[in-house]
Amino acid sequence: MSANRRFRRVVRIGPVHVGTYNDGRGREKHTAACTAPRCGFSTDYDSRAAAELAARTHRCRVR
């Protein structure tokens, strides 16, 4: 099954986008994903604060 997520409250912190969505069970989840080429950083969190902290402290290894 594909992941068809509708993100809301999307903010950009540096190259990282943080967005909120509801998972398949109706729970609210938060994602932090880097948009830099060849980076590949993307994680899901239960709290918005954790996702924003990850976005603020993320450092791309690809240069």
Rank of each mutant, 00 (worst) to 15 (best):
R48D: 11
C60F: 08
V10H: 00
S47L: 08
C39M: 03
G40T: 05
L53V: 03
A49M: 07
T31H: 09
G40M: 11
V18H: 01
R63Y: 06
V18I: 03
F7K: 02
R61I: 13
C34Q: 05
T43Y: 09
R12S: 15
A55P: 08
G40P: 10
A36V: 11
R63D: 13
S47N: 09
S42I: 14
R12Q: 15
S2W: 08
Y21D: 08
C39Y: 02
A36D: 08
R6E: 13
R38S: 14
A36I: 08
R63H: 13
D46M: 10
S42Q: 08
P15T: 12
C34H: 07
G26E: 06
R25S: 09
I13W: 00
C34A: 10
R27N: 15
V16G: 04
R56N: 06
R59S: 10
G26K: 12
H58C: 08
A51S: 10
F41P: 00
H30T: 01
A50R: 11
V10T: 15
A49N: 03
E52T: 07
T35N: 07
R5P: 04
R8N: 10
R6T: 14
P37I: 10
R8G: 09
H30I: 00
A32G: 11
A49R: 10
R5Y: 13
T43A: 12
A33Y: 02
H17C: 14
R38N: 13
Y21I: 03
Y45M: 00
V62E: 07
R48W: 12
F41V: 06
R9Y: 10
A51D: 06
S42A: 15
A32F: 01
D46H: 11
M1A: 13
A33G: 01
V11W: 04
A50F: 01
R27E: 13
R12W: 11
S47R: 14
P37S: 12
R59M: 12
R8K: 14
R56L: 15
F7H: 14
A36K: 14
R38C: 07
R63N: 05
E52F: 00
P37G: 09
A3V: 12
T35Y: 01
G24R: 10
K29Y: 05
C39V: 05
V18F: 00
A55T: 06
C60V: 11
E28T: 14
N4M: 08
F41T: 06
V18P: 00
R9H: 15
G14S: 03
A49G: 01
M1E: 15
A3D: 15
H58N: 09
C39E: 03
V11P: 02
G24T: 04
I13A: 07
C60I: 06
D46N: 14
G40N: 03
R8T: 13
M1I: 04
R56W: 05
A51Q: 10
G14A: 15
L53Q: 01
R59I: 13
S42P: 03
A49D: 09
G26H: 07
